[in-house]
Design a binder for these strands. Structure first.
Lengths: 186, 186
DNA sequence: CGTTAGTTTGAGAGGACTCAAAGTCTGTGG
DNA sequence: CCACAGACTTTGAGTCCTCTCAAACTAACG
């Protein structure tokens, strides 16, 4: 999915936007396992996933905890850094070979500082992210391991097919073994 | 906390903003237990908590599940409705007597459609909400009941003092009894 | 001072965890 | 094209955390 297709129609033909996309974005391909960004650092890029699957994760008692998956058409960024100016606790890595388009967040800020349309579209995007996160919170809050897995199957079957079991388990907040047992009884 | 104090300095003196705050906002006081907004409806207001404590919740097997608390200086809104145009699954109610200032989201949209400053401040606010939600997800994902409670004490001691145990328990995703036992052993 | 909301305590059941070991898959080098 | 190493998944056994149901206790309020 191309970046421009993710924009509302009226912005797709806006010369400022086109200029922004063509001049300020770079493309990069990550191989399976490649790190895009490391924890405890500042990374002020915003990535748009053109193709592939990526994830964010951190270490807890030596184990990797996957916090989120990012597929085609989604945005990936260090919100800690962009919005709070802190280093981030998350690593970002490619689960499979992935192509991303990225730009410096400062450039996006510059655009939003002069383009009302962009600022408002950006608000819209953030609003949708909030809805997604809220939904995820309510899954984690009270569902059993099995319910969480079934919900993921329903809402994001492609992740289940594409990501290894261990990553999915930690994403759901359950152990690998438990997820494996759940799979076998379905 | 007054609404105007929540704004960045440069906006506090902006005539358009002042006009917006004084003309488009209303004030309302809710008594303990009062419902602000009900599930399965559209509520397109945005509320700013001047004083007090409110919460959002839904019903699961007849039990109330508290999803979030809102204290002084925070915003409360039906993101389902504002960003996705759906009815919401959440109820909002006052945990204790609370004063809110509220406006129609459409008015805020109108303001953002003409005021770059406002649109960008709004983006900033949304960004912070995202950071908070992300943080909450990681608490729910892997902490034990006790760890979640200790984290809440650390980050939001006032909620623990002001909200009844049952609401706090469901907010943490644990049962009342478990929370009570955790309290007694601390 | 009684009624209701809220909290604590107890007992038993079950889900999910950990540690450990055995399978299975996959890709690379001979 | 096969074999093997390393990554990934499954299975087993035992333990512990947290749940549920029930009942007693306490606080708040009219």
């Amino acid at each position: 999915m191309e970046l421009i297709d993710a924009l509302p129609k009226n912005m797709q033909t806006d010369p400022d936007i086109i200029k922004f996309i063509t001049e300020d974005f770079q493309t990069k391909i990550f191989k399976k396992g490649d790190l895009i960004s490391k924890q405890d650092q500042y990374n002020r890029h915003v990535y748009f996933v053109t193709h592939g699957l990526l994830r964010s994760f951190y270490y807890e008692n030596g184990k990797e905890i996957t916090t989120k998956f990012y597929t085609e058409g989604q945005l990936l960024a260090n919100t800690d850094t962009l919005f709070q100016n802190n280093t981030t606790r998350y690593n970002f890595a490619a689960v499979e070979e992935s192509t991303v388009k990225f730009c410096n967040y400062a450039k996006l800020e510059e655009l939003c500082a002069v383009s009302l349309e962009s600022a408002n579209f950006s608000r819209f995007v953030l609003g949708n992210i909030i809805t997604q996160l809220t939904e995820r919170i309510s899954s984690l809050q009270f569902l059993t391991a099995k319910e969480k897995y079934l919900k993921l199957i329903h809402e994001n079957p492609n992740i289940i097919l594409r990501a290894p079991l261990g990553m999915i388990a930690s994403y759901l907040g359950i152990s690998q073994e438990t997820l494996s047992r759940i799979r076998s009884e379905i």
